[in-house]
Design a protein around this nucleic acid. Structure first.
Lengths: 122, 122
DNA sequence: TAAACATATGAACAATTATTCATATGAAAG
DNA sequence: CTTTCATATGAATAATTGTTCATATGTTTA
């Protein structure tokens, strides 16, 4: 997968280019970096373990151990994935003694997941 | 990455499980298969080339060649990615002679991308 | 029918990533 | 201070995937 568009890349070999359309759309495109960040965000949603964790947190805040038990997975695997979710600000957490409780960070998470569900249920 | 949850998996080794919470949340979880499909959908959004293609199609329907030109990528790479987008029903297409024009399939695509943008712009 | 052009696709390679295993950190209790 | 327990993390491995290259398909025009 490519990381940036900064290196020279070979162009399309077609002759049919509609230059005015290309120019028009190019002008309205968000910055390369923003589109890259957006893809990175959706990459986080693009794993079934993380989707399950997010869905679990729809209901209640939960500790790492409970999530692991619920999903029949190891504590380590869940902890690694919670870190990814945390880095994308999709979940937040609070500490209570030895236990760490995780919950959803904001309402965008719900909206995105709900829209995704609607799409696949069509 | 794991494909299904059907094989036996080792459980969490913690002792702290809050069984009533686990049971309560388990009851409300969507089917395993649905959560898997949802992750598959977001995986499609999770690539910067495909995000760029979707963003480009926000504005206008476009042919493969124009998209390739606009994104400075090969026709082959774009065509492969359009296939992925087509398989997830995120884009549709119409043929006009030799040319194939692609456009966004439905409004969920816009909503999902817009919510994602809002999230990263916070 | 042949040539030209737009698009699609199969195979291969390089890069990314989810899980496991072993171990570290940090908090509470004895 | 030592033990116990909940969580975090680094390294390694296995599996997935985006792009390229070569080539195929399908449509139009000469």
């Amino acid at each position: 997968m490519r990381i940036t568009d900064s290196e020279p890349i070979e162009q399309c070999d077609c002759v049919c280019v509609h230059q005015e359309i290309v120019d028009f759309v190019t002008a309205d495109m968000p910055a390369e970096e923003k589109l890259y960040d957006l893809a990175e965000l959706f990459k986080v949603f693009g794993d079934s373990t993380r989707i399950k964790i997010l869905y679990v947190l729809f209901e209640k805040e939960m500790c790492v151990c409970d999530i692991a038990e619920l999903l029949h997975m190891t504590q380590s695997a869940i902890s690694h994935q919670l870190r990814v979710l945390k880095q994308s600000s999709l979940v937040k957490f609070r500490r209570e003694g030895k236990t760490v409780y995780y919950s959803l960070a904001d309402s965008h998470v719900r909206t995105i997941i709900n829209q995704g569900m609607e799409h696949i249920e069509e």
